[in-house]
Write a protein that binds this DNA or RNA. Structure first.
Lengths: 352, 352
DNA sequence: CTTTTTTGCACAATCGATGGTGCAATTAAT
DNA sequence: ATTAATTGCACCATCGATTGTGCAAAAAAG
C-alpha cells in the first residue's frame, strides 16, 4: 500500500492520487491556491492526501525555482563562547518566529574563510545573512553584493552596509569608571595600576580602548601607553602577556580591563599556574558577560552586550530594505560582580 | 561587458562563452571530466572562463538533481552553553575538513521541535545528521529513517541507531569519588552532607546518578533518596531547589554534585542572592567543564566530556554505513579545581 | 437562448545542474 | 584502404517545485 516510506512523496504523486494537475497540488500546498481559484473541496482533498502520505515539499526544488531558500544565515567568528553562542540562540529564535530556517556557521576570524563560507551559503540561495564579528566585513560585503544578497553587520561594523554594534566607546567608559570606582576604598589607584589586555586592531577594540584611555586620563590624571596590551583574540597570547608582566613585576596589575571573555580565559590559564596569593586583591573588568566569570574569587565587573537588542534591530533594518549604510549603536549593560543574569535559555520551557 | 555581476553565471553562460555544451561545462567543473573524456585543453578553457566570470555552482540545483546537498547537520538542544558550543565548534572543523558544509541548529529540548527541525533539514536534502542531546532520539530516528537519512546520536543515546556518548556512569563515579576525597581533610562527610542537583529522567542523568549513588554508598555507607534532586535542565528550577534547601537548613549541603553547567548556573543565581559566608566551605562537582566555573571561590571539580573523541567516533561510524545499533562509550576526564584547559579555539590561528 | 463573466483548473516552460546514451571524427589495427 | 577502436563531445531527460497563460465549463447578465 504505502510505498514503504522509501522515497518521499512529491506533488506528482499527489497529482496522480488526487486526479489534479501538479500545478494545482503545488498551489494548494504552498498557500497560493486562493489566488489561483482552486475550489475549497479540491484543496481539502489534496491537503488530506498530503497529510496521509506525509508529503513535505522539497525545499531545494522550491529554492531552485524561486531562487529563495527560506534559509537565513548567521556568520560567527566562533561558537565556543558565551557571547556568540547566546547570539546564535537569540538569532535562531527570531528566525524561527519568522517561519524561516536559521543556519549558523563560524569562520574562525579568518577573512578568507569568511568569504568562502559566505560563497557557499550563497550557493544555497540563502535569503539573508547576518555577519557577526567579521574580521573583514567589507570583504564579505563584496561577496554578498555581487550575489544581490541582503546582509547586515553585527558586533563589528563595515563601511558598505548597515552595522548594528554595541556602543563600545560608552561601554568602555562605563566599565573603566566602574573599575576605578571599585578600587576607591583602597589606596588611591595610580595610572600604572590600571591595565588593559586583549583585543586587536578592530573597531570594537579601538573604541573600547579609546573609552578606557579617556576615562583613565580624566580620573587618574594620566594614561601611559604601556598599560595597553592588545594581545589579539586568543587565550594563549593573553596568558603570555600576563606571564610577561608577572615575570617583570612579580605581581599582576592592581586592576585591569580585559577586552573579551576569550582574553579572560588567558587570565584563567595564568591563574591556573600560580598560587592564590598572586591575585588576592586584583579588580577585573571584562568586556563580555559570562555568568561563571562573574563569581570568581576577585571582583569581576562585566559588560553584557544587548544581544537581543542587536539582533532585533538588525532584523528591523534588514526588513526595511536598502538605504545608505549607517552605524547603529546599542547600549550595553554594566554587570556588577557576583551577578547571575537571565539569558536566552530562560525563554525555553523545561519540560520533563 | 560583464553582466554587472547582477546575476550569477551558470553553466549555460559558460556553455555559450566556450562554445561547448552545458554538460561538458558541468563535467569540467564538477571534476568528472576525465571520466567523460573531455580534452585537457577544453577543460582548461572552461576553467579559465569559470574563473573569469566568478562561476560558482548553484548547490540547490546540484542537490536537486543528485538528491544530495553537501550539507551535514548537527542538531543541538541549545547553543548557549560551553559544552554544546564547543561541540558545534569541533563539529564544524570536522565537516569542513571533509569538504562539506556544516549546519548547526538547536531544538530547545522540545521533542516536537526536534522532529520538525529535522524534517526541515531533510527537505534540504542534508546528507547526514548528528543528533546531539536529543530529548527524543527515537522520534528523530523515525523521521530520519523514513527519509533514508544517515544519522547518529551523540551525548544522549537512542535505541534505534548508533549512539556515541560519554561514559556517564564512570564519569559519575569519578566525580563523586573526587568530591568525597576532596572533603577528607575536614571532619568526615556524612551521607546527608552530599547532594546531587539537576538533570532529569534521561539516560545521562540516570547513569550519573547511578554512579553517584553507588560510590556514595560504598564510601559513605549510605545513600538516602532525599539527597537526589533532579530539577530538570533549567537554571531557574535548580536555583529554586537550592533556595528550598537553604530555607529549610539555613545553609547549603557541604558538598554536591551538579548535573550540568546549566544547572550550575542555578547555583550562581542562588549565590547572587546570598552573602559570601553562605558558601564559604562548600565543595562542588559539576558534570561539565567550563573554564570560568573552575576558578570559583570554592573548590569546583569538573568533568570534561571528550567532545572531540565523541565527534570523531561518530564520523567514523557514520562513514562505515549501517550496522546494528550499538552504544559507544567515550571516557570523560576529571578536571581538578582551578584548571584552564585548552579548547577547540586553540586550534585557530590568531592573525592580526 | 445568446453573450459575457467568472470559476476552476490543466499545460508547459523554467530554475541550474547531472549523467546516460549516441554519434561523428580521429586514430589504430588489419 | 577498410574495418575496428578510441576519443571528444552534444543531446536530452530528469530532479521537484513555481508560475504565466489559456481554455472549457458553469454562472450571470442581457
Amino acid at each position: 500500500m504505502r510505498q514503504e516510506s522509501k522515497k518521499k512523496a512529491t506533488i506528482y504523486d499527489l497529482s496522480v492520487l488526487s486526479g489534479c494537475s501538479a500545478s494545482t497540488v503545488s498551489a494548494v500546498l504552498n498557500g497560493t491556491w486562493q489566488k489561483r481559484r482552486i475550489k475549497e473541496s479540491t484543496a481539502e482533498l489534496i491537503r488530506s492526501l498530503a497529510e496521509k502520505h506525509q508529503y513535505t515539499a522539497n525545499l531545494q526544488a522550491r529554492g531552485l525555482r524561486s531562487s529563495r531558500s527560506g534559509l537565513v544565515g548567521l556568520l560567527l567568528p566562533v561558537h565556543d563562547n558565551r557571547y556568540f553562542s547566546s547570539m546564535a540562540q537569540t538569532f535562531e529564535a527570531h528566525v524561527r518566529a519568522r517561519g524561516q530556517c536559521p543556519i549558523v556557521v563560524s569562520a574562525c576570524r579568518d577573512p578568507q574563510e569568511e568569504r568562502q563560507t559566505v560563497e557557499t551559503l550563497i550557493s544555497y540561495s540563502i535569503d539573508e545573512l547576518f555577519v557577526a564579528g567579521a574580521t573583514d566585513p567589507d570583504g564579505v560585503h563584496a561577496v554578498c553584493e555581487a550575489a544581490g544578497l541582503k546582509h547586515i553587520n553585527i558586533d563589528l561594523p563595515g563601511t558598505k552596509t548597515h552595522s548594528v554594534i554595541s556602543d563600545n566607546y560608552e561601554g568602555g567608559r562605563l566599565l573603566t569608571k566602574a573599575i576605578i570606582r571599585h578600587c576607591e576604598g583602597d589606596r588611591p589607584l595610580q595610572p600604572e595600576d590600571l591595565y588593559l589586555f586583549g583585543g586587536r586592531n578592530d573597531h570594537a577594540s579601538r573604541e573600547r580602548i579609546r573609552g578606557f584611555r579617556e576615562v583613565k586620563r580624566a580620573m587618574l590624571g594620566a594614561d601611559p601607553d604601556e598599560c595597553i596590551q592588545p594581545t589579539g583574540y586568543s587565550p594563549a597570547m593573553t596568558q603570555k602577556a600576563f606571564e610577561t608582566f608577572y615575570a617583570r613585576e612579580g605581581r599582576l596589575p592592581r586592576a585591569f580591563f580585559i577586552n573579551s571573555s576569550i582574553n579572560f580565559e588567558g587570565l584563567l590559564r595564568f591563574l591556573g599556574q600560580h598560587p592564590h596569593e598572586t591575585f588576592a586583591d586584583i579588580v577585573v573588568g571584562c568586556y563580555d558577560y559570562d555568568p561563571f566569570g562573574s563569581f570568581l574569587p576577585f571582583p569581576v565587573i562585566m559588560i553584557r552586550q544587548d544581544v537581543d537588542g542587536m539582533i532585533s534591530k538588525a532584523f528591523e533594518i534588514v526588513d526595511q530594505g536598502r538605504s545608505p549604510p549607517e552605524l547603529h549603536l546599542i547600549q550595553p549593560e554594566l554587570v556588577p560582580p557576583r551577578t547571575a543574569l537571565m539569558g536566552p535559555l530562560d525563554a525555553l520551557k523545561d519540560i520533563d
